[in-house]
Design a binder for these strands. Structure first.
Lengths: 242, 242
DNA sequence: TCGCCAAACTGGTCTATACCAGATGAGCGA
DNA sequence: TCGCTCATCTGGTATAGACCAGTTTGGCGA
């Protein structure tokens, strides 16, 4: 964890308000997922205006210490979920192993085709048939990511008939005898914009982490392309190599 | 790349201003690293106020499309640097291979000791001696990261006497015959706060990516712990496994 | 020509206020 | 008891200013 400079007592108002709230969180006066006082109350109790209070809140949000729920208020962020994108794994099992409660919703299952963009990522030819799967996943009742999964329809006949609220990785293994290898993973921080922001119930522009994963089978045949949009404060990526 | 919804013509003013600027960037009317009109000009030409214009700019910044240079203005972000944290590599060579110009500055070299926090990361005992190295790295003249490196002083005798403006990885290999293996990597998005924000010349609270890497030698002996603070719009992490 | 200084310009911070839209909860009515 | 309505709460968006602190630049003077 980056170390904080606790010495500064002076400086801009909004940073002092930030420090004040951050201290309360660190001291446990504000528990994870509990609500902060409203912006108006924070402004008044710090002898400032709502605009400045919102600056302080935006800071804490950028640091991943608090999050907002649309028009409901600001809440203390729970610890980040540890996530290893290089491993085949069950989201649900991983979440439970960390003492949290997972949930998965399938938002959409649609047959579709390889676009130019997907062709560049997967190596398939434009127009090849895919099954597109869109899911939202929650931790302790809070949506933390939406994902678009593109499955190779030719390699996975009948895939569209399965229940996608369970682990996709187990499904591929048990029904198709697949072990996924040769993954290409890409990720970078960016803002969540509209289809994703809306699905997660956050304001457009909320900070997120964009992760893609392209998986192939033992023979190098393309199986699955996964595009994940995470809320930036909900995860910590951990990878071990060597 | 996450796909944008180009259909929306209505909605909040600040999102329309954002779309307007984003279109100009996509169409190449605004080149990478070129300056945007000032906030006051943007406000006036969009018939709105500076506060609203700043909301639009903050959106674009969160998306990684533009960045700001303290009190100098807003600039179009160049393409993200591709970075693979699992590989031993030379920052300079990687940057040059992508057609960009790297620079490294050593900010500090200090003997120090293992703290409780470092002990938990490295497995060393508290109080063991380390060499702490702080560097700032640039791409095309823009600082993109600062890093704190903690080197195992016992494993690397005389390390403090070297020139650290070159590749550390090459130094370890050539002078100590080391190949680093068994790396533990952790990363998550967070805001850059003060020692780092100041070193990068950005406002405290700017979005960043925090990356740590713990490297050991062939025998599992701790060699180096690296803590990197990247500007969030400057990199794309890419990893291949399997 | 060179170096310095001051004016003009930039974003950074802040006040005070307003209205809107979605979420919530108390209380009323069936 | 259950369900609905509506007042009240929340954050979301927006206006119209203000002053501050660095940066840049143009011009003046040596």
């Amino acid at each position: 964890m980056p170390e904080r400079d606790h010495s500064a007592a002076i400086g801009p108002i909004y940073l002092r308000v930030r420090d004040h709230i951050a201290d309360q969180i660190e001291q446990g006066l504000l528990q994870p997922n509990s609500r902060l006082p409203s912006e108006r109350v924070l402004a008044e109790s710090n002898n400032t205006t709502r605009v400045t209070a919102r600056l302080a809140l935006a800071q804490l949000e950028a640091e991943g210490r608090i999050y907002r729920s649309n028009r409901r208020g600001w809440f203390v962020s729970p610890p980040r979920l540890v996530y290893n994108p290089t491993e085949d794994y069950s989201f649900s099992e991983n979440v439970m192993a960390q003492g949290r409660t997972p949930a998965t919703e399938t938002l959409e299952v649609t047959p579709t085709e390889v676009t130019a963009w997907l062709a560049s990522k997967t190596g398939l030819a434009e127009g090849d048939s895919l099954v597109r799967l869109r899911r939202r996943r929650q931790v302790d009742g809070r949506p933390v990511l939406v994902e678009n999964i593109y499955l190779n329809a030719r390699r996975l006949p009948g895939i569209e008939r399965f229940d996608f609220n369970r682990s996709l990785w187990k499904l591929l293994r048990e029904h198709y005898g697949l072990e996924l290898v040769r993954k290409q993973i890409e990720m970078f921080p960016t803002a969540l914009i509209d289809p994703q922001a809306e699905a997660l119930g956050v304001t457009a522009g909320t900070a997120g982490l964009y992760v893609t994963r392209c998986s192939r089978d033992q023979d190098g045949c393309f199986v699955e392309f996964d595009e994940e949009f995470w809320l930036h404060d909900t995860l910590s990526i951990q990878v071990e190599v060597g």
